[in-house]
Each structure stands twice: as C-alpha cells, then as structure tokens.
Amino acid sequence: MNEFLQQVVNGIAWGSLYALIALGYTMVYGVLRLINFAHGDVYMIGAMVAYYAARALLAPGTASAPAFFALLALSMAACGLLGFLIERLAYRPLRRSPKFTALITAIGVSLLLENGGQLFFGPDPKFFPQLIESREISPGSGIVITNVQLLILGVSLTLMLGLQFLVFRTRVGTALRAVSYSAETASLMGIDVDRMISLTFVLGSMLAGAAGVLVGLSNPKIEPLMGIMPGLKAFVAAVVGGIGNIPGAMAGGLLMGLSEVLVVGYVSSTYRDAIAFVILIVVLLVRPSGLFGTSLEEKV
C-alpha cells in the first residue's frame, strides 16, 4: 500500500509537468483549431535556455533557490518570446489558408527547432546543473517525497492556478474564451483577435518553458530531441482531457504521469510510453470528445 502511495506521489509530480505542456496545446487549439506540433520543442528550448544561462551566470556548484527562480523566470520569458515569434512568423501569414497548411507548417517548425537545436546545442546530452540540492522529506508511513518533487508540484500548481484565474476571472481571460468560441463575433466586441492569439502563444509557451526547467531538476539529462516524446504525451493528455478545455488538460496531464509511473512500477518499463496511447484509444472509443470535453457543434 505504501509503495502504491509512493508511486502515486511520483506520478502526480511527473504528471504536473505533462499538464503544464498540455495546457499550451489545448489553449492554442482553443483559439486557432490548430495542433501546434512545435510546442514540445518549445519545452526543450526552455530547458536549454536555463542550462546555458546557468553556465554563463552561475559559479559551478551553486545551488540556491533564488538562482532557480531567476532561471525559471528567464526561461519562461525566452519561451514566451519564442512562442510569440513562431505564431507571428509561421502561423499568422497562413491565417486564411486551409487548416491543413497550418498543420504541415507546425510540423515544419517542430523539425526546424529539433534540427536547429542539434546544430546549435550539439546532439550530445548535457547535464542540467543541480540548482536545488535534492533532500528527502518523509511525511510518515514510509513515503518519501523529495524537496525537488515538492518544488515541481508547487511551481506547476501555482502556474496552473494563475492561468485558471487569468482565463476565468479577468477581462482578458473572458476575451480569450470569447475568441475561442467565435473569433469573428469576438472582433465585433472590439476584441483585437490577433493580439489574443499572440497572447495565447506567449502564455502556452511560458508554461512549456517552465516545464523544461522543472524537468531539468528531476531528469537532468537534456538534449535537443527531448521534447518529442513529452510533447506527444502532453498532446495526448490534452486530447484525453478534451482538447480546448483547460481543466481537461490539467487532468489529462496528471493521468498521463500517474499511468506512466504506475505501469513502470507494476508492469514493465517497456510500456512506459505505450500506456499513454492505450489510454488515448480507450478514451476516444468511450468519450470521443475527451473526459472534460463537450461535443463540438459544427459552426456554420
């Protein structure tokens, strides 16, 4: 039983990272009906930015919470800018083109970031600096939680609550939800739709950047192709939760993390990636619009 609880704890910490990435997929889909396949690579850039910034700015062996938060902010800002540029340069010129064109472009941007990353950063793995010294905390009953896991959970939860507040409690968030329902009608309210789309990319990419830094704390081996599998799983998480639905992406992310950790723990690590797609297939068979999704009416 304790072992199971331990796995659940690990799964939730891991899943919160998927949730952070999944939010970007789901938000962009919400406003543009586009799967931004480059999103997983933005997460990789987030890790790389923090890695190079730490090397340039910190003395080797420095481990401090302020340094971690500074790097987190820097990576988020850099990824926000990257997301802004991706939308502006790659997707906006295609706003009136068929959806398929934008989708192919998304795959192109993804390949550009992956191969560009190999060119600039080198294909060899790098070791993310130990910004936080890992310590074990035992809340009793034999479960072990590390301070790094707590930090990952705390930061992701804070970011997700912040996003939830922004989207559901503020004027800008209401405008975002209006754009996701109908961009044309939103423009009749005086909403600058292009700006809202930019904002969506910036916010989603910032969350992916944060996930990139957080993952560096627990899995310090980073390389330019590290975004492919987590990106795919976060996409699955967004679809399982109901694409376009923000709470759904969070739940889907946690489900991905939990199932992965439990499969590794109780079945075999061979299936750690397969389980995501098994869940995807089952959910799509039972609830095609996802766990939290409402059936999409075709808009005329």
């Binding site: 405008a175 939800r177 209006a178 329902y181 939103a186 309210m189």
Partner: peptide
C-alpha cells in the same frame, strides 16, 4: 445571434463593453 454560449449572460454583456 452569435452569442457566446460558453460564457454567462453577465460575461456576454461585459464583453459588449470590452473597449
């Protein structure tokens, strides 16, 4: 009509005054 069916009546009216 093109009202925002995913928003409340209050939110729809609020968006009318967006600017």
């Amino acid at each position: 009509r093109r009202i925002f069916q995913n928003l409340t009546v209050r939110e729809n009216l609020g968006l009318g005054a967006y600017l």
